[in-house]
Write a protein that binds this DNA or RNA. Sequence first.
DNA 1: CAAGTGACTAGTG
DNA 2: CCACTAGCCACTT
Length: 108
Amino acid sequence: MRAKTVSTTYRRIYRTVRRIPHGRVATYGQIARLAGFPNHARLVGYALHALRGADDLTVPWHRVINARGEISLNEFSGADLQRKLLRAEGIAFDRRHRINLNRFLWDK
DNA sequence: CAAGTGACTAGTG
DNA sequence: CCACTAGCCACTT
């Protein structure tokens, strides 16, 4: 079992992730920046990782992807689930399982 | 307490 | 576009 050490830092990240609108995605770096931790993309990944298995979707973790427009989870840890959730929101994937950030990035 | 790890990224070539 | 790298940092061993 993972100890749920929810620091204020994590809460700040979760709060930011909750702001991502339905049908849009954001990158780890983007969330980090908006949460007030520029250049700490990795921290966001770590925070979301600590969320796996938790009360699903109180935080829309599936809307967070990497800067290349890909899902960072590997096929063994739920990438298909994330794809399914995103598709259900109308987000399209290309042949290589990538998302067109020009179209779906939670922008501006 | 040092070293390893990871849902990252921007820069180079 | 791909491969490799240095920089970042909380958490685990």
